[in-house]
Structure formats: structure tokens, C-alpha cells
Design a binder for these strands. Structure first.
Length: 595
RNA sequence: GGUCUCGUAGCUCAGCUGGAUAGAGCAGCAGCCUUCUAAGCUGCGGGUCGAAGGUUCGAGUCCUUCCGGGAUCACCA
């Protein structure tokens, strides 16, 4: 039980005893004492004045006295206006420290055997390479999954690859027409890049056709619908759906190129999945559900035999589920894949990491599933993250304004190398060690940069300015870890033992503030899991690293003559390093021993 | 137009369910390496929390209106 809960419970007992009244959580307000005041935790007494019927100071004093007399963890208090600041005993912090500082997995909860939380993320299209927007999705999804594992959940990461459809046919058609049998092998180009280029090529030629049609006096909308290239692509899609051998062969070949390319990028980002679904295998699934909905009378059919769901009673419009030609739309497929996931995993929840432009889509998805009587519809959670914007607006694949994922990682690597060469503290690194370090730092900088901002918020990325390596950054925190490890190596070498219990040690202010921060780590993990926010973990790691660096400058370790103080400070350092490492592991960031 | 979102320092971002004089980093200026890694530490300057009302003992946080940005409302995905 966390100390905040103990204080809250005690407060309830106290109010019952002193003022003969029961209070709820809303009135029992406990918060951390602000640094400028003496104390560890603060009870806000304003809400209790109506019950005590006394002045704030008097009420706070009465409660403070109760705590001193009855709660052994509390050793002192002071009152400022309506705030009752409680000081915990030195012993409380020391014994917490003794119990946990050598726990490798401190803050992580053992995996429970429970039905899984299925998290879908990434879900790329196989017609273009990954860009910065996808990077945010992938890092977020992966991290949210890891955080939930650490919080004790049984997590399954899944990917639904969008490997078929009109957009795929467009790049296939362009390759057929203008590809000259180019392959990744012959061109030396990464497969996803090659295919992406043909997708762009299609768009260029298609636009030319539209322009020509308009020139000939054809209406704009009609031109877009009837351009020969588009008709040809549609034709190809029909062939694909009929199982045409040639089209399928081409489709398989080009998708294989893309997967080879994606694998490289995924691997570099450190992303993985427990299960990969392919839309080509699932896109027909929703039709059964639609059929079921028609039978139940939840859905209806129009004269042209298209099928709809009426959501007007939910304040929404009608939603199409089957086209008049009987083919399914995106929504239909998602109904099917949701059901498939439920059948596959019997999950306690389904999480979709998908951009906020699809809020409406998921809203509708849940409502339709609800109408269809799927009780698990309420367990669907759409983690809708914000877009990544560039100074000149949002990224558009077809307009070439995207920040390519591979290029970005290359640039980060370059910056890491230059920065490291400039600031290097060692000259004995082998090429391999250097490469490993640059990789670690560049990915640390990138991942931290993206994950530290609240997932829900739109974020800004300026390609002109490289991502920082100092200040509130990944490398700063990695540096803190390496710095601690350096001191610990020296301590080990000098034969200093800091792996022990501490009994009487009176904590210095900076030692205590670090221990207090670390004390919160388990709750931060829980909260980050519940709110699906890696940003909370990133912020925590930064606060800890910052606090540690102040400690480092203020208090000597190896030079300290008092042996117990020396050992305690080394032990605090070791604990800090371990927690930084754990926190960063949840963000997918590795920490170096030396840098 | 309907719905949903966001607006905090020059820039990028924190600010848990309303609580004490609104915090970091970057950028700028000034200090600190014969001392455990200076990717660090210390200090200075910088804010009518988009605007106006309201609820409350108390509002960056909740409500209303307005201004500004974004998303969405397809027989696209």
C-alpha cells in the first residue's frame, strides 16, 4: 500500500474521530508537498472546513496532532494557511530503500495470467515507405504495449497489414507500365521505396490525364472518375478479387519487396509483433456479420441492395456497410477483424493505435458492434494520437513533403556520431562499439523526442533543426546512466561495498529527493499503462536524471570519508541507474555503460 | 454548417481527478573542469496560461460565448 493511501485512510479515520463524520475520497485530498515548503505530503484542509466548523489553521493543527500520535510514519507537521504539511520519518524512506534498491525489476508487476489486452499498431499500407507519422505510431504502439506488460497485463501486439486494394493496384499498374522490370536487386533500392516511387508515378500520370480531360471540356469530377489509368487500376482490382493468376503473381512479388523493406525499418526501430494479420485474408470477414445484422433487423437494405446501419438514434448518420455491388468497405472489414481478434484471443480489451483522423470511424465501429449485440464493443479503445506536423503543414506522401523514416534514422545516426566524436571521453572504443553507441544514442534521441509528448497532442517536427542531444533529451538521460556506471565501476575497483542494508543513515536532502522520486515509479508505470501514455514514463525519467545530476554535483561519493555515507550514495546511484534503465526499456531505448 | 479537438515564455513541451508565488528544455547572457564522465551543474532575463463572462473559499484545469488553428462528417482507406 502506498503511503498516500495510508495517509488518506488515516485522514478518514481522523475526521470520523474528531468531527464524527464520514468523508469520501473527494474530500480527502493528499498531494506531494511543494519543494518550497517543509514536508513530504500535504493534506488540503479547505474541503474539511464545513465538517470541522473551525478555522483552517485550527483544523489542520488538530488533524496534524492526530497524525503525530497515531501514524508511526509521520514524525512532524507544519501548517500554512489551509495546508497541512506532513513529514515522514527518515526511517520510512530508509526502509523503503533497503527493501527495493536491489530489486532488478522494481516498479514492474509480475505478469498475471489473464485474458490478453490486444494492441493493434503500425498497420501500414504496402504501397509506400514509412514516414515520420508511422514512426510515431510504431513507437507509441510498441511502448504502450511494453508499459502495459510492466503493469502486469498479458499483452498481444498485432499488426494488420493493408496489403490489397485500389491503392496497391495503382503502384502495381505503374510498375507494369513504366517499371522496365526494375527490381530492388537491379536498382539497389529498398523494396518499399521502389514501390512507393511507382505509387507516386501513378499519381503524376493520373493527374496529367485528368488535366487533359478537363482541357477537352470534361467536368472536373467526371474527369477524376473516368481517367483511363484509374479505370485500368479498378479493372486490375477486379481481376485481383477474382484471383487472376498474373495479377496475383505481380501482387505477391511487389508486396514481398515491400516486406523486405519494412523488415529493415522495423528492426531498426526495434518494433515487433506477436501476430500479423493481412487484409487480403480478412477483407471478406465482415460480410457474415452484415448478414447476421440483416437477419436481426439491425441493418437494412436499400432498393439498390446496398446495406446500411442507421445510427440516427445515436446522433449520427447512416453508415454504409456493403456497396450496391455487394463489395465491402473499410468499416465492414473492421467489423470482421474485430470479431476475428475476439475469436483468436478472447481478450479483455482491444486497443487500436490509429491517428485521430479516424475518431469518427472508431466511434461508429463501436456503435455498430453494440447494435449487433457484441458485449465486448465496450472494451474497444481507440488510442487516437495526434499528427506530426512540419513547419509548413502536414505531411503528404504524394506531394513529397514527408520525412522518410529511414532517412531520419540515418540523419540521427550521423548527428550522434558527430556529437560523440566531439564529446568523447574514451578513445578505446572499437568500430563495432562505436557503431553500437551511435545507434543507441541516435535512436534514444529520436524515440525520446517523439514519446515525451502527450500522445493525444499534435506535435511539431522541424527537419531544419536536428533533434537535440542535450537538455530534456534521450541522450542526456543515457548520459546520466553512463555517468553512474562509471562511478560504480571505480567503486568496485576500489573494493567499496555498497550492497548492504542501511540502518541509521540520516538522509541528506538530495538523497531523499531521489528516493522520493523513485518511490513513485511503480505508480507512474500503472498510471502510464492506464492512460496509455509513454510520455509519463519519459517525464519521470527526465525528472529523475535531472535530480540525480544535482545530487552528483552536490555530494561526493568516492571522495567521501564517512564510509556509510559513501556506500549509501553509491547505492542510491545504483538504484537510480537501474530505474532509469527500466524506464527507458519501456520506451524501447537502451542505455550505455560508457559514452 | 454539425460534431470533436487544441491554444501555457521567442521556439518545443510539462502542469494527476480544481489547491500554495505557473514549470522544464532550447535559444540569449554570466559563472563552474589540477576534484567521481562539462552530452553536466549554478545564476539572470523572459508569461494579462487565446479573449470575455460564470461556478467556487480557491480556476491554466470545470461551464457558456467569442476569436484563432486542426481533424472529421464518402458506395476512400
Amino acid at each position: 500500500m502506498m503511503i498516500e493511501d495510508i495517509i488518506a485512510d488515516s485522514l478518514k479515520n481522523c475526521v470520523k474521530l474528531l468531527y464524527n463524520s464520514n468523508i469520501n475520497d473527494k474530500l480527502a485530498q493528499i498531494q506531494k508537498t511543494r519543494i518550497e515548503f517543509e514536508g513530504d505530503y500535504t493534506i488540503v484542509v479547505f474541503p474539511l472546513l464545513g465538517i470541522s466548523r473551525k478555522k483552517p489553521e485550527q483544523t489542520a493543527n488538530e488533524i496534524g496532532n492526530y497524525f503525530i500520535e497515531n501514524i508511526e510514519e509521520i514524525e512532524a507537521f507544519n501548517v500554512i494557511k489551509g495546508f497541512l504539511n506532513l513529514s515522514l520519518t527518515n526511517d520510512f524512506w530508509i526502509s523503503f530503500f533497503n527493501r527495493n534498491s536491489r530489486e532488478e525489476a522494481f516498479g514492474f508487476q509480475e505478469n498475471k495470467i489473464s485474458s490478453p489486452l490486444v494492441i493493434e499498431y503500425s498497420s501500414p499500407n504496402t504501397n509506400k515507405p514509412l514516414h515520420l507519422g508511422h514512426v510515431r505510431n510504431n513507437l507509441l504502439g510498441w511502448s504502450v504495449a511494453e508499459i502495459n506488460k510492466a503493469a502486469g497485463k498479458n499483452v498481444k501486439k498485432v499488426n494488420l497489414v493493408n496489403d490489397r486494394g485500389i491503392h496497391i493496384c495503382k503502384s502495381m499498374l505503374a510498375w507494369q507500365k513504366w517499371g522496365d522490370d526494375k527490381t530492388p536487386g537491379s536498382s539497389g533500392q529498398k523494396g518499399d521505396k521502389l514501390v512507393g516511387d511507382f505509387y507516386v508515378k501513378f499519381d503524376v500520370e493520373y493527374k496529367k490525364e485528368i488535366a487533359a480531360l478537363i482541357e477537352n471540356g470534361i467536368d472536373k469530377g467526371e474527369a477524376a472518375q473516368n481517367a483511363p489509368l484509374l479505370l485500368e487500376a479498378k479493372q486490375m482490382l477486379k481481376k485481383w478479387e477474382k484471383g487472376d493468376k498474373d495479377v496475383h503473381e505481380l501482387w505477391k512479388k511487389m508486396n514481398a519487396w515491400v516486406y523486405d523493406g519494412f523488415d529493415i525499418t522495423y528492426k531498426r526501430m526495434g518494433i515487433d509483433f506477436d501476430k500479423v494479420y493481412y487484409e487480403s485474408e480478412t477483407y471478406l470477414l465482415g460480410k457474415d456479420i452484415v448478414e447476421e445484422g440483416l437477419e436481426k433487423g439491425v441493418l437494412f437494405k436499400k432498393e439498390d441492395s446496398s446495406v446500411w446501419c442507421d445510427l440516427s438514434d445515436e446522433g449520427l448518420d447512416r453508415k454504409l456497410l456493403l456497396r450496391s455491388d455487394g463489395t465491402s468497405v473499410y468499416m465492414t472489414q473492421d467489423l470482421g477483424t474485430a470479431q476475428l481478434r475476439v475469436d483468436d484471443f478472447n481478450p479483455e480489451g482491444l486497443v487500436y493505435v490509429v491517428g485521430n483522423e479516424q475518431i469518427y470511424h472508431f466511434d461508429v465501429l463501436k456503435k455498430i458492434l453494440n447494435k449487433l449485440g457484441r458485449s465486448w464493443a465496450g472494451n474497444i479503445f481507440h488510442l487516437s494520437y495526434g499528427m506530426v506536423e512540419l513547419p509548413h503543414g502536414k505531411m503528404k506522401s504524394r506531394e513529397g513533403t514527408v520525412v522518410d523514416a529511414d532517412d531520419l534514422m540515418d540523419e540521427m545516426y550521423d548527428t550522434a556520431r558527430k556529437t560523440s566524436e566531439e564529446l568523447a571521453k574514451f578513445d578505446d572504443f572499437t568500430d563495432e562499439e562505436s557503431h553500437k553507441l551511435y545507434t543507441m544514442l541516435s535512436m534514444g534521441a529520436l524515440k525520446y523526442f517523439i514519446l515525451k509528448v502527450d500522445p493525444k497532442k499534435t506535435m511539431m517536427f522541424n527537419p531544419e533543426e536536428s533533434i537535440d542531444f542535450s537538455g530534456n533529451t534521450g541522450p542526456f538521460i543515457q548520459y546520466t546512466h553512463a555517468r553512474i556506471k562509471s562511478v560504480l565501476r571505480k567503486a568496485d575497483k576500489a573494493g567499496i561495498d555498497y550492497n548492504q542494508e542501511f540502518s541509521s543513515a540520516k538522509l541528506a536532502s538530495k538523497e531523499k529527493s531521489i528516493i522520493k522520486l523513485i518511490y513513485d515509479f511503480p505508480s507512474v508505470v500503472q498510471l502510464a499503462a492506464k492512460s496509455y501514455s509513454p510520455a509519463l514514463i519519459a517525464n519521470f525519467a527526465y525528472d529523475l536524471a535531472k535530480e540525480y545530476n544535482q545530487f552528483y554535483h552536490e555530494l561526493p561519493m568516492l571522495k567521501e570519508v564517512d564510509e556509510e555515507k559513501r556506500s549509501l550514495r553509491l547505492a542510491v546511484s545504483a538504484f537510480t541507474a537501474n530505474v532509469i534503465k527500466s524506464a527507458f526499456s519501456l520506451l524501447g531505448i537502451e542505455v550505455p555503460e560508457r559514452m
